[in-house]
């Protein structure tokens, strides 16, 4: 704002607006950045909050290049609650998900149902997290969430390949059991085409996401981490995916939602935390805030600065 003459706003890969700096305000830019609200109807009753499921205290993540990505954040999520993390991509949300999901190292304290999680040692991996009841729908499904060359059924076992239900005996896996399980999941999550032997890369983005969601949600986790649940997903599937996430919350589970789509955050979350530059800039109630306020927080402008 201080060094430019004109400002252009890019959104979803398109230049949506160009304005003269002296004629604009942070508020206007924020609105341009998040775009106008697309009404997403998520049928969602009031949250039935239970005990605290996830407690994060002073979490810090330093990446390989010694850059601090998460700079000491603290928050809680209760059972039956969806906490939405809003923010422009690259402000520490991805690292937060990765650390909670078991890959990536961090300092600080994270407790799940009162039990402290290992953030650096041998129990800091995806397997240990899953055993504790943390399921994770990663932000980048093609890169992290699935093996694109594997068949759908192999991807259903991905991360859960040690599950006793998938074993024939102590040596061999029970591929038929996984196939059977996949058929059921594909039916319940309306995956098309419902062919378990098809390679993951042959499915559309929405159907890939449904496979991952089926895999993670049907584990009935204590805590669901979900990043960009509907990125690159068609409208029909978006609705379906949102419904499933809300159902999990209504079943008394905790959900941590990370999305760069403000509409999504606002319509799904019970509480919104905004991240900027590795810090939480503030928490808001989605019913008592608006996109402009959130947009300002996302740009790192707190109430004090704006005034």
């Amino acid at each position: 704002m201080e060094i430019t003459d004109t400002v252009s706003v890019m959104r979803r890969g398109e230049m949506t607006a160009t304005v003269k700096t002296k004629d604009t305000s942070p508020e206007e830019l924020a609105e341009l950045m998040v775009g106008r609200k697309v009404l997403l109807d998520v049928a969602k009753g009031p949250a039935q909050l239970g005990k605290v499921v996830l407690e994060v205290e002073n979490l810090r993540v330093v990446d390989e290049d010694k850059v601090e990505r998460v700079k000491g954040i603290s928050f809680q999520i209760r059972a039956g609650e969806i906490l939405g993390i809003a923010g422009v991509a690259g402000n520490g949300q991805s690292e937060l998900l990765e650390v909670l999901g078991g890959f990536g190292r961090a300092t600080g304290t994270v407790r799940l149902n009162g039990e402290e999680l290992d953030l650096t040692g041998t129990k800091s991996d995806g397997q240990s997290r899953r055993e504790k009841g943390i399921a994770h729908v990663p932000e980048d499904r093609q890169h992290l969430g699935m093996i694109m060359d594997f068949a759908a059924w192999e991807n259903v076992a991905f991360g859960y390949h040690n599950d006793p239900a998938y074993q024939k005996n102590s040596l061999l896996m029970d591929n038929d059991a996984i196939l059977e399980d996949t058929k059921g999941k594909m039916e319940r999550f309306d995956v098309r085409p419902p062919i378990p032997t098809l390679a993951a890369k042959s499915f559309s983005g929405g159907n890939q996401q449904k496979i991952i969601l089926a895999r993670e949600i049907e584990r009935n986790p204590e805590l669901l981490l979900v990043g960009q649940p509907t990125r690159g997903v068609d409208i029909g599937a978006i609705e379906f995916i949102h419904k499933r996430i809300v159902e999990l919350r209504d079943a008394g589970k905790a959900v941590l939602l990370v999305s760069v789509e403000l509409d999504e955050i606002m319509s799904l979350s019970d509480r919104i935390a905004v991240m900027f530059d590795g810090r939480i800039m503030g928490e808001r109630d989605p019913d008592k805030t608006n996109e402009r306020e959130l947009g300002l927080l996302m740009a790192g402008v707190t109430g004090k600065d704006a005034a």
Binding site: F103, G145, F150, H161, M173
Partner: peptide, 22 residues
Amino acid sequence: RTRLGYEIRAFGKSEPAALYAG
């Protein structure tokens, strides 16, 4: 047919995804 083989093949296809899967 084994978990180890599954892990070997998954790791061979994508190391980041293998990390995600633990």
